[in-house]
Write a protein that binds this DNA or RNA. Structure first.
Lengths: 219, 219
DNA sequence: ATTACTATAGTGCGAGTAA
DNA sequence: TTTACTCGCACTATAGTAA
C-alpha cells in the first residue's frame, strides 16, 4: 500500500518490458493506468530510482526494461495469486542429485536444529543432506514453496553465529520418508536440500546426475 | 493506480476472506500491509462501498468475505500475471456440444463480420456456430483467452444495432480447421462458440452432449 | 513528438480519540 | 479490546509549460 508500484510494474511487463527493452512513452503508460502523463513520468522515475526498471532515454521517447529485482517482485506477486487460485496439497518436483560442499551437514548437525527436527518431523535426521538441483521446468512449482507455511523450525544464535528460521515439507523419495528444508529468508535458488532418517544417497544407491522425483506434501 | 485496492483485496484473500468469512481486524490488516490501523479501516470501508467485500460487524471485530465482484477482480489480476509468466502457444480445451438458440448464426451471418472472417481467418465460415460448454476444470484456461490478443474483427453498427468487436483464435477440432470466437467485451461465460468453413456438427457427426477437445492456437 | 519541471489542488496517512 | 471519526500534515496528481 505504502508505495504501490507493483501495478505500474505489471503494466510495463504487459507492455513488453519484462524480457527486453520496450519503447514505452509516459503518455501510453498513463493511458493504460488511467493516470496523467505527468504522473506516469513520475512513476517511471520512482521505479528507476528503486532499480526496478532500467531506462534508455532517446530524443523522442525512452526504452524500458524490468530489472532482475523487478522481475522477482512480479514473480513473487504472481506466485501469491497462484497459491490463492490454484491451491495444491501435493507436488512432484524433479531434479538431479549433485554433491554439495557439506554446508548442509554442518547446519543440520546443530543441536538446536536437531532437537526440533526430531520433535516436529517425527524422525531424527541422518546428519547430512541430499542436494538436488531442480529441473528448470519445475522451478515455478519449487518457488511456490517459498510462500507456503510448512513446518517451522526456529532459528537461534550459537557461538556468535546466527542460524535462521527454516521450514520443512514432508516428502517421499522413492518410498523413503524424508523432508525438504528451506530457509525462511531465502534467496533465489534451484537447490533443494533433503533430509531423512537414513543416508539417502547410499540407501537408494544414488550418484551424481541421477534424476529423482520428490513427492512433496504442503499439508 | 487511481484507486489501488487490489493489493488490499489480495491481502484479505490471503487472510482467508476469498471463499468464506474470515475474522480480520483493522489492526491485523494494517500490520500485513504496512499501514496504520486507521488507514486499514478506511481501506475496508472503501472496498465495502465498492461492493468488493462484504462485512459482518460484531462487538469486538468484524468478519469479512470477498464478493463475487472482488473475486473476479482478483482472478483477472491472477490471469494477467499468469499470461506474463507462463505464456503458452497452444491450449487444449474440453467441453460438451450443446444446441444454442441460434444467436451465433445471426451474428456471424452479418456481412460486415463475414467479410473480415474470410480475409483474416483464411476461410469463409459456414453460417452457424458450434456451441461448446467448457468443462469446469478447463475454465481457468478458457478464461485466459480473455486476455490474449487473438485475431481482431472490428465491430460496426447496422440498422441501429451495434455489433461489437470480436476476436478469433485459430483452432483444430478433430482434424478440422476452425476458430473460436470471443466478444472483446465479454462477460463471464463457459460457452465457447466455434466456426468453420463446414457445418461441424454434421461433418463430425456430433450430437448434444458429445465431449470434444479443441486445440486452440494463441499465435 | 517527447520527458519532466513548477505550482497548485486534491487525496491519503496517521495521531489522537470517541463509542 | 474493537471500529472509525476529525484534523493536521505530507504526499501525489494534474495543469501548464520548458527543453
Amino acid at each position: 500500500m505504502k508505495g504501490d508500484h507493483v501495478g505500474t510494474l505489471k503494466q510495463l511487463a504487459i507492455m513488453g518490458a519484462l524480457n527486453s527493452f520496450a519503447e514505452i512513452t509516459t503518455r501510453m503508460l498513463g493511458e493504460s493506468l488511467g493516470i496523467s502523463q505527468q504522473a506516469a513520468s513520475k512513476e517511471i522515475l520512482k521505479l528507476a530510482e528503486k532499480k526496478l526498471v532500467e531506462r534508455q532515454i532517446g530524443q523522442k521517447g525512452q526504452r524500458l526494461t524490468i530489472t532482475k529485482a523487478g522481475h522477482e517482485m512480479l514473480k513473487r506477486e504472481y506466485l501469491e495469486y497462484k497459491l490463492l487460485f490454484e491451491p495444491t496439497k501435493n507436488m512432484q518436483i524433479h531434479g538431479s542429485v549433485f554433491s554439495g560442499l557439506g554446508e548442509g551437514r554442518y547446519y543440520i548437525s546443530q543441536a538446536r536444529y536437531k532437537q526440533q527436527f526430531a520433535k516436529k518431523l517425527m524422525f531424527a535426521p541422518f546428519e547430512g543432506t541430499l542436494n538436488i538441483r531442480v529441473t528448470a521446468s519445475d522451478m515455478p512449482l519449487f518457488e511456490t514453496l517459498t510462500f507456503s507455511e510448512g513446518i517451522r523450525i526456529d532459528g537461534f544464535v550459537s557461538k556468535g553465529r546466527t542460524f535462521g528460521d527454516v521450514k520443512c515439507f514432508l516428502a517421499m523419495l522413492q518410498g523413503i520418508e524424508c523432508s525438504v528444508i528451506i530457509p525462511v529468508r531465502t534467496h533465489y535458488t534451484d537447490v533443494m536440500e533433503v533430509i531423512a532418517s537414513r543416508h539417502l544417497r547410499s540407501a537408494l544407491s544414488l550418484k551424481d546426475g541421477d534424476m529423482v522425483e520428490l513427492d512433496i506434501s504442503l499439508e
